[in-house]
Design a protein around this nucleic acid. Structure first.
Lengths: 213, 213
DNA sequence: GCGTGGCTACCCCCTAAGAGGTAGCCAGAT
DNA sequence: ATCTGGCTACCTCTTAGGGGGTAGCCACGC
């Protein structure tokens, strides 16, 4: 398949440049155009061949929300993700109601942001983690970490988590539980997925904070 | 029962000779082997039939602490006593945390040293009197580093620790603090040493338990 | 002036960690 | 009888982590 063509809309040239650099680190994505305000975005959305629009909210001539509305009312259904500093509930809700396919905060980690942009291009609804709670009550498909995450773990996974949370390496855990290191890795991998975490460090902190011991 | 077989690990041949002479004054003990560095010690610990290892800390090819860790991680639980000139808190704590069964200073009186070695071979935890205070602090404070470990950290190291304890990778920390990943690694390395910990996972758990946030 | 500690950055080297995948075995459920 | 979930074990591949070292710059204290 050909590369994903993206329009970046933001009134700060430097920010656009940063996003361009980030996005084009991925060989499958390219910045097909830039716009510095909502009006230009509406224009570009109607003329360029686009797969995804990254839109700022706060812009001078026309803000992102209004631009989104005009784009949609022009019958353009290009995927569009808000990329902004505002974490206000109202902004999030309004953007999604107006037809945004995602809402990301500018202070995300770059590689995380890049991953979300890719997901958005693939058709997923992407939301910054901090906003997941807000979204839970509004959108049905929200992906917030389940409160009963602990009970979803098998007893073996709990064994591993408890040991991991004492700072043990996979090898030490393996020796202690008398299984191979490879098997420990499998359990760690699975429990990370179940808990929605990304590393054993997060798992250890999670375990301590949830009284797993 | 048969005589106690001891491995002496020290990079000074003369010191080894002195210990050998001292130990073999006791008819129930014998020096079953000598090693001049940590690597040799790890090797010997895995092959010789031993009851006790006397290990120096400061050695060229592999220091005693690392040798101890490797021995333990090889699943060898032979009793092991550090025999060194260092009376630094950090060294004592690290050795005991790494699984040492004792920590003796080289400037002890010979007959006193011999008595302690016998005790160690019998299963006791032996500590040079001068270090008793340190040990008391460790035992009462549960696990973890010296009481003033936190205050020994520089402000930058605290920055790193706080961020690390949120599960961030070195790369993420670097981006957040606007330094290179290499520099983050340096700080992590140093704070691990100061806290007597062995991995970022232990550091994260330590941070949570000590309210570093 | 000089040394020291703190922060930064880089080097090399090796191991640990994590994401994929396949697969065998077993117990409990259907 | 077949299926499913859980536990085990192995594979490959890539990145992350951590130990060792050197070094420049700066601020502080002596």
């Amino acid at each position: 398949m050909s590369e994903t063509r993206i329009l970046i809309v933001d009134d700060h040239p430097l920010f656009r440049r940063g996003v361009r650099q980030l996005v084009e680190m991925d060989p499958d994505m390219t910045i097909a155009g830039e716009a510095s305000n909502g009006a230009e975005a509406v224009e570009a959305a109607g003329t360029l061949e686009l797969d995804l629009i990254l839109m700022d909210l706060n812009m001078a001539r026309m803000d992102g929300l209004e631009a989104l509305r005009q784009i949609r009312s022009n019958g353009v259904d290009t995927r569009l993700v808000m990329l902004t500093v505002s974490d206000a509930d109202d902004d999030v809700v309004a953007a999604l109601r107006a037809g945004a396919d995602g809402y990301l905060l500018k202070d995300m980690e770059p590689e995380d942001l890049l991953a979300r942009i890719k997901e958005a291009a693939e058709g997923k609804l992407v939301i910054s983690p901090q906003l997941a709670a807000i979204l839970a009550g509004i959108v049905s498909g929200g992906r917030a970490a389940p409160a009963d995450a602990l009970s979803s773990l098998t007893s073996r996974e709990l064994d591993i988590l408890r040991t991991l949370a004492r700072g043990m390496s996979n090898k030490m855990i393996a020796r202690r539980l008398d299984i191979t290191e490879g098997t420990v890795k499998v359990h760690v991998k699975n429990l990370l997925k179940k808990l929605g975490l990304r590393s054993r460090v997060e798992a250890a902190v999670w375990a301590v904070n949830h009284g797993v011991s």
